[in-house]
């Protein structure tokens, strides 16, 4: 009841406001304008919705063509490296002319990125199937982390000869963002699947630490000539142990307890 009265009042108020300009003839035009605008908008909404859908399809189609070419290009990496040449050969293998390599303005960088993304996805699929017993054994799932790092590294095996070049390409300034993004998603996936659900500062520490371990191991792996990559595995094991030691040392350190003391102080105040 009250609200009805209020609406009436406001209607009267606003109506009153509009009466004057109507006499002047100015609002008449305004109303027309607003009408045509609203019509336009409804039109635009309809077209934009269909546009979004077709846009999505279009992009999907383009992505499909691209990944098809990149997939084929990987076959030529052992022969011609992470280069535009491989992309050209890949495009030709996918049934396009060589000039289609222009789809990848970053050249080898795009190819390396594609490979990294592919490997990360593979690793996630693998990790999902791994038994969960490893995770329960102790506070830190060392076995799981070691296994995942090794599994990921062994995906590079077919391209081991050309991988130093790929690492160099990743370090080029225009490829650094992509490289860091794939590295982050890799360590994030490993942390998540190893049971990390932290929401505090440890979240960052674990990921940065793991990224460090992964990159160090990658470098070690490049020069590892041992049978079955035993040395690399030992290397990972000792790095993970180092990280564990570091963590326990930090826990003992009074500095780490300082923030807690501070919060406690604030809470009591």
């Amino acid at each position: 009841m009250k609200s009805n009265v209020f609406i009436l009042l406001t209607a009267f108020k606003t109506g009153h406001k509009y009466i004057l300009p109507i006499i002047n003839g100015a609002v008449h035009r305004n109303i027309q304008l607003s009408r045509s605008y609203s019509q336009d908008r409804s039109h635009a909404d309809v077209t934009s919705v269909t546009a979004i859908i077709s846009d999505y399809d279009e992009r999907q189609y383009e992505e499909n063509v691209k990944s098809q070419i990149l997939q084929k290009a990987l076959q030529f990496v052992t022969h011609s490296g992470w280069t535009t040449e491989s992309l050209t050969a890949g495009a030709e293998a996918a049934g396009y002319p060589g000039i289609t390599h222009g789809l990848f303005p970053n050249g080898g960088g795009d190819l390396v990125h594609y490979f990294n993304v592919q490997c990360n996805e593979n690793l996630v699929d693998q990790m999902k199937t791994w038994p969960k017993e490893d995770l329960k054994e102790s506070n830190v799932p060392t076995k799981f982390i070691e296994n995942s790092i090794m599994a990921r590294l062994l995906m590079i095996e077919p391209y081991k000869n050309t991988w130093p070049k790929a690492m160099a390409i990743q370090a080029l300034p225009n490829n650094v963002p992509n490289c860091l993004a794939t590295l982050l998603s890799l360590v994030d996936d490993i942390c998540y699947h190893s049971g990390d659900r932290s929401v505090d500062f440890n979240w960052y520490l674990r990921r940065v630490g793991l990224a460090g371990i992964y990159k160090a191991t990658e470098l070690f792996y490049l020069t590892d000539k041992s049978n079955n990559n035993v040395s690399t595995r030992n290397f990972v094991t000792s790095r993970v142990r180092d990280a564990q030691l570091l963590q326990s040392a930090l826990k003992l350190n009074p500095i780490t307890t300082a923030p807690q003391t501070l919060t406690a102080a604030f809470v009591t105040v």
Binding site: P97, I99, H101
Partner: peptide, 10 residues
């Protein structure tokens, strides 16, 4: 340089 033609380009 952006076109970067390859052998076999028409």
């Amino acid at each position: 340089a952006r076109l970067a033609p390859t052998h076999g380009t028409k």
